[in-house]
Amino acid sequence: MKNIESIVKNNLSHLIDIDASRIDIDLSIFDDYSLTSLNLVILITNICEETDVPVFNFTDADIANLRTLRDVITMFTTAAGQDA
């Protein structure tokens, strides 16, 4: 499997048309990258597809607690059983 961090960054870069190399995973996905709640849903869905992590693995609370891309990476890394 590809590195989860690069998958997450690539998906965000496609979604908001930003160079993946300029993405700072510690910035706020809402305040700094201006994701709407629907954007976040589609981001998570796309990452699930690419990582083969079942989307049902995540609860509403898991999604609601996401603030940064690091949170997203950690969530997927944990779900995929990988080390961060």
Binding site: L15, D17, T36, L38, I42
Partner: peptide, 14 residues
């Protein structure tokens, strides 16, 4: 509209 707009952007990005 917001749902379809988000979908439009996601489709276009692919």
């Amino acid at each position: 509209p917001a749902f379809f707009e988000t979908l439009r952007k996601a489709i276009a990005a692919r």
